[in-house]
Design a protein around this nucleic acid. Structure first.
Lengths: 210, 210
DNA sequence: ACCTGAACACCGTTCAAGT
DNA sequence: ACCTGAACACCGTTCAAGT
């Protein structure tokens, strides 16, 4: 009948895709479904699967895009604040909050930490902070790495279902059962653990300063 | 010519597969190649792919098998030792050492922590320890969770390539560069960070005891 | 440069058939 | 119960063709 079928072949007058749009759609897809597939991502973008390859390097490239996208959300400005512990606490909270905002994405990214220029710049600033406080240079990297490892582990914990702490009936663990029951706020189990660990690690930095 | 071709159809006189053998082969495969595929796993076991489904629930079931297999290697006996900090330190070191022995498997398992009966029993014992020391019951779970999160994050860190800390030429980060250079032993970067964080977390438990 | 359609190798899963 | 062979839907990736 009419020429409603606008299926087009060949290069469009203006590009319909760009890395930013792909990254946003991918993150949305992961948030919605817990995973992603190139065909499904392409469908959401109204495009054929191979089109993606003009902008990202396959599936691994999309994961990289997720990493970039979430890395941008980490609020580095905390590191401008003083005193140093307020700066670090704010930064690491933001770091974890970004993961917590996209729990389904965490397992995809956990393989390797974010190493974008922005994150490297953040490390640079944190090292300056530690230097100001008097932490020996040789120890600074170990301290920050420990903090980051803790943040990533905590993010994974947050992403994990709370159901994982349900005890099977056949295991006898009275102390564990009552400890789970005695939690001040079970719904914030992961948050409590995070705040505890973060405070602990930061306090130990104070100990190392001169 | 001869009947060398022993391809058989139907149920074998004695089972050729069992969960243990599948788990061991899967772990070996992951250690060797960094991943696994059901066809590849079946090939190594000298069996057809669908045969695996008689023993494990598909691909997810194999991951579960990996978890069980590695969980068995964690040395719980540390928790019988005293004083409490020796017990906990030994246990968490063993926990991480198991991951470190199979770095390629870590990303596969990181999604959810090990929650086998053995690990639950370990938690039970650790809670008894914390109780002996006088840690308030309401805080105990947060403390142990923080330790576990740290261990898992550290395991992922260990599994990550050290190359990730190579600085691109275009980023200007003098403090980061010198901090990396000043590390007491770069080849043990991940280990140093782990030992630092673990000591810190354990020390804070002492603070919480009465 | 950038999108499409067709094609390929490969993977996870199901199931009937056979002992 | 336990293994095989065949079959299916689906995925990631490549590439020539078209603008």
């Amino acid at each position: 009948m009419s020429t409603v079928d606008q299926r087009r072949v060949g290069r469009p007058s203006r590009p319909v895709l760009d890395r930013r749009r792909i990254g946003a759609a991918a993150l949305k897809l992961v948030d919605d479904t817990g995973g992603f597939t190139l065909p499904e991502l392409a469908r959401r973008l109204g495009v054929q699967t191979p089109s993606l390859y003009h902008h990202v390097d396959g599936r691994a490239g999309v994961v990289e895009l997720l990493r970039e996208h979430m890395g941008r959300d980490i609020d580095i400005s905390h590191l401008e604040r003083r005193p140093w512990d307020v700066a670090l606490r704010g930064f690491f909270r933001s770091y974890r909050a970004v993961f917590a905002a996209h729990p389904q994405a965490v397992p995809l990214l956990a393989t390797s930490a974010v190493r974008s220029p922005e994150v490297l710049a953040a490390y640079e600033k944190m090292l300056v902070l530690l230097g100001e406080v008097g932490v020996p240079r040789g120890e600074a990297m170990a301290i920050l790495t420990a903090c980051e490892n803790f943040v990533i582990g905590s993010a994974l914990d947050f992403a994990a279902p709370d159901v994982m702490w349900e005890l099977p009936d056949d295991v006898d663990a009275p102390h564990l059962a009552s400890a789970l029951a005695d939690q001040t706020s079970p719904e914030h189990r992961a948050d409590n653990a995070f705040e505890f660990g973060l405070s602990t690690l930061l306090a130990s930095i104070a100990d190392r300063s001169s």
